[in-house]
Each structure stands twice: as C-alpha cells, then as structure tokens.
Design a protein around this nucleic acid. Sequence first.
DNA 1: TTTTGAGTTGTTCGA
DNA 2: GTCGAACAACTCAAA
Length: 485
Amino acid sequence: MPDNTANPQTAIVWFRQDLRVADNPALSYACRHFEHVIPLYIWDPETEGGWPPGAASRCWLHHSLKALDHSLRQLDSRLVIYAGDSHAILEELIRKYGVDGVFWNRRYEPAVQTRDAHIKAFLKNQLNLECRSFNAWLWREPSELKTGQGNPYRVFTPLWKRMLQDWRQPAVYPIPEKIPQKQSLPQGKPVDQLALLPAINWDQSFYLYWQPGEQGAWSQLKRFREGPLDDYLDDRDIPSVEGISRLSPHLHFGEISVGQIIHTLCPDGNPPVDRQKTGYLRQLAWREFSWYLLCHFPQLPEQPLYSKFAGFPWRTKSSYRSDLIAWQKGMTGIPIIDAGMRELWTTGWMHNRVRMLTASFLTKNLLIPWQEGQAWFWDTLVDADLANNSQGWQWVAGCGADAAPYFRIFNPVTQGERFDPEGHYVRRWVPELAAINGKAIHAPWRLRQGILEEAGSAPDNGYPQPIVNLKTTRERALSAYQQIR
DNA sequence: TTTTGAGTTGTTCGA
DNA sequence: GTCGAACAACTCAAA
C-alpha cells in the first residue's frame, strides 16, 4: 500500500452560500489537490451577525441542502451537516479527521467576513493548515473598483459604465469528475434535524412556483434565455407577464453563480451588443452595486446611508401598528399593493415593480420606517438577500445611494394602470375584485356601488376600503421630507 | 480647485 | 388623450 493511502491528504470544503457543484472554485481546488474531501455545511446563524435567515429563506435552504446532497451523491460523496458554532465544529473535525486543508467561497456580509477572517487566521497560524477562500459570489471584487478620486462609487451608472468598459468575464469551473474519498465521512446529521421547515406546512404553495437547487436554477435560466430575454426591456416591468429571470433565490443561495449566467449569455467572452442582454446584465450589476455598497458601507442594513435621514419624522410604532399589519396581510384596500403583498405571502417572492410600489406605499403613504418593511421582506422572501434588500429599501425611502428625489412618490393607481393595464395581476391575487373588468380594478372605490354589485363584487365581500387617502398622504410625505432638507 | 454634466424605475397640472 | 413643464435642489464623478 502506498503511504498516502495510510495517511491521505484530507480537505474540508465548507459550503455556505454556494450550494452548487458546478463553478465552485473551493470544491474544484480541493478535488484537484487532495485525496480525501469532506463536503461540509454548518448551520450557524448565531455567529453571522444580526440577520439570521428568515422563515421563507429557511424553507428554501432546507430543499437546497437536500438538492446539494443529491448532487454530491452522484459524485460518490455526500453532504456532511452540522449545527452550531462554525469555529468549534471546524476545529473538532480537523482534529478528529486529520484535516490538512480547509477551503470555502467567500461571503460578503460584514459580520460574516469578520468571523471568517478570524477562523482563517486561526486555521493558518494556530493549526498550520492550508486555508484558502475564493470569490464565487460577485462579478467583481468590491475593493477593485473605485472612482478616479479613489473613493467608493455611490452612484450606479458610473460603476456600471466602468464595468462595461473594463469588461471582465468571470472564470467558470466545471463540475469535478469525482469527489475523492479515501475513508468514511463524518456522520453529521440529517437535514431534517436542522428544523428549517415550519411546523405548519404554510410553505407548500412555494413549490408550485419554485424548484430550489442547482437543477432548478438551470431550468429557470434556460426558460429565460429561450423566451423572455428577447423582450426583456419591454416585459420586465409587467408583473402579470413572465418577463424576468426569476433567478434571485437561486443566486442568493449560490445554486447558480453570476459568472455562470454571464458565461451562458455571453459565451464569446465579450460584452453583449444585444440591447436586451445588456439590459439584463445591468440588473445583475445592480446586485453587484448592492453588495459593493454593503462592503464599503457596512451600516447599510441598519442606518440610512445619508445620515440626515436619521431625523426623518416617521410615525411612531403605536400609531402605525395596525397599518403595518394591513400592509403585511395585503388588506390596505389599494389593489396593486394588496396583490403584491399576497403574492409575497403565497409564493415567497414579489415582482420587482411591485416591490417598489409596496415599499413606496409603506414608507411614503403610510410613513412607516423602511426598516419595518425591510424586516418583513427579510422574513417572507425566499430570495431575501442582505445587500439587495437593504439597498432596495433605502433607495425607495430616499435615504440610499442614487435614491429617488423626495418628490418621486409612486401613485399605486397610476402605476397599476400603466404596468397592469388589463388588471390581470390584481385579479390573480385579489380574488375579491376579480369581477371588475379592465383597469378600473385599480381603484374600486371610484366605482359606484351599483356597478360593483352588478359586477358581482359586493361592497361587503371582505375587501376593505383604502386605509389611507393617496392624495393627502402624498402631501404628508412631501412635507415630512421638507423637514429634513 | 473649480466647473460641469448627470443622476433606474414619477406625479401632477394645465394647455 | 397627450404633451411639456414644474417639482427643489443636491451629490457624485470626471474633466
């Protein structure tokens, strides 16, 4: 027997938000250089900052871990799962299994970066292990891109122009042919023991719309590339049309990488000339921009980027509590707002146009702090992503980078008429209004009672009157913004 | 240092 | 219905 069989070089690949076997540089590296690879996942929300995955994200994670385990088994391995303190579990496994190297793909949440840096220093300096991390999350490293003055960008367009001009095609790694295994893997625990799924099966409806895992990600990309992409710029704003990629949860859990998407859409390695493709990549660049901002301004999830907003006269919790609940339940009496909030509740996702409308309604018409909306989205979205969610809410609230001018307040009726002109979207999610034809569905309070009854939509069918007057609350928001100018 | 041009996603009003 | 102007003025990025 050769010596290396008796004492094989053993590596841990620490999976985190890179739940894929293709284009996984940490996994590829370990498989190339080691004789025994332990694929590890640790459920450890405690040491990852104040943003443990919300209820919808945990459902997705459960299924994504199952899918990853399945993929690994096809490569003659499996996923080893533990729950607890990452540092302690790594250290224990390293000692028990004689591990020589630990590899992972980087996460960019500020608290996770700090934790990982400590772990890396410990593994390298105290245990003398080979320890490497890779970028498998972002198109460009945030530290690479600065303005001419050497400052971080705070405006999207200059960053995007720079990315186009200084085009980098990310490298894409193939699936390892096999994951080497020379001895038995640590036992770990079954995914079910992480108790990620809810006790009541409220997540059942999610899976009518989603297939978590790497395979589901690729079938979404295929669908998008073969159809909606050609009309992306026209259709991306129409919530009743499947005009978008629906890749956000897959990207969030790293079931597919931004590099793989770029590589699929631009196989020749050059920036696209096609307007539709460029338009889609521009949206991926918004994801980059959000992560870029979070890296350079780590307070983004908690504090307004522009500090003068700290003094914004939001309503107090006791005065807005019932309005917040109406918003969360999709019972505000404003049809497109309620449609969006119900789509979110049922599917774990909401169309981007409607996210902007519901967020504008919460922060401006209801004058409720953006952090309340951010927290609700965090809990209910399957694609909840610290950078995207925080950046998006700050943008709408007007306190973030490139924020909308304060007077830009969406009118949900006008927006509904423009982006859901036939009312298909509202009719789908607000069945109480299904009998109203055409765009009149966006303002049922304008219809006379007789017309409503004729349409089979009686006023007492449970759908509420609007909880606020859009015109007067718009004016209230404008004067609130005057106060911090 | 100063200047200049530009900035995801709008609404309302009045002609 | 459609169109242009007003909304108010600030910050950022690059020249």
